[in-house]
């Protein structure tokens, strides 16, 4: 479960203070599929960095499974990310020199898990992300964009996280492959009851979630269930 209580992030440049996000209060239950939407500069990425424990709030409280992460240091935040968070980025961020399988096992390397178990869990994650086995030994550059994003989804899944955060996961994909990636998220949500937060500025993409939180100028202006949900 995720809980934000009056979370704010302030960026200082000299004397000037800008609130990237402020007054953020919401709760996301386990197994929810939420889209965070808003125009450019509305604070979506800032919020994702906070929820993903890449950053800590300037004010307010952020509770991840009941634990307050606001006061944690850099090492402890790394540990939380290692165990509880899976990231999917717009630009995939795969290591070009490593095979698909090794890219997916990477989070488990930092968790100190042995090779055999690593590869087994990576295989499960790749299967769940719907990437056929024949591609597992490929290098990322040998794959299409949609496949690369599925590798990234498998990497986000492999540590069995409490929360999957995807920042514009379809931003670099055409409509058709984008739809396949969104279908993968929906499948993970319905079949594995994953908690997924999808960040996007495209209404079409957001409509695949069960609930939509809208931001403008760093504040929540709307938070309601998505009644016209697209099911793929």
């Amino acid at each position: 479960m995720i809980e934000c209580r009056n979370v704010a992030k302030i960026y200082r440049s000299g004397e000037e203070e800008t609130y990237a996000v402020k007054n953020i209060t919401f709760t996301i239950r386990d197994g929810e599929f939420v889209a965070i939407m808003g125009p450019s500069g509305s604070g979506k990425s800032t919020l994702m960095n906070l929820l993903g424990c890449l950053d800590t709030p300037s004010a307010g409280q952020y509770l991840l499974n009941g634990a307050d992460i606001s006061a944690l240091d850099d090492n402890e935040l790394s540990g939380i990310r290692m165990r509880q968070i899976g990231f999917v980025f717009q630009s995939f961020n795969l290591l070009p020199r490593a095979s698909v399988l090794r890219n997916v096992t990477l989070p488990l390397i930092y968790a100190g898990i042995k090779r055999q178990e690593r590869e087994q869990r990576a295989a499960e994650a790749l299967t769940a992300a719907a990437l056929p086995e024949k591609f597992w030994s490929y290098r990322p550059h040998q794959l299409s964009g949609g496949m690369m994003q599925r590798v990234a989804i498998a990497r986000a899944l492999v540590n069995n996280p409490a929360l999957i955060l995807a920042d514009e996961p379809t931003g670099n994909l055409d409509t058709k492959t984008g739809a396949a990636v969104l279908a993968t998220f929906q499948k993970l949500h319905t079949e594995q009851q994953r908690t997924i937060i999808l960040i996007t500025h495209e209404p079409y993409v957001g409509e695949h979630a069960e609930r939509i939180i809208r931001l403008r100028d760093g504040e929540i202006i709307d938070d309601r269930p998505n009644n016209q949900r697209r099911i793929l």
Binding site: G52, L54, S78, G79, R83, F89, P107, Y110, R155, N159
Partner: peptide, 16 residues
């Protein structure tokens, strides 16, 4: 740099 960012995001500590 981006690789370093990614490694940090998936749980690498600064000392790793």
């Amino acid at each position: 740099t981006r690789e370093i960012g990614l490694r940090r995001a998936i749980g690498a500590r600064a000392r790793d």
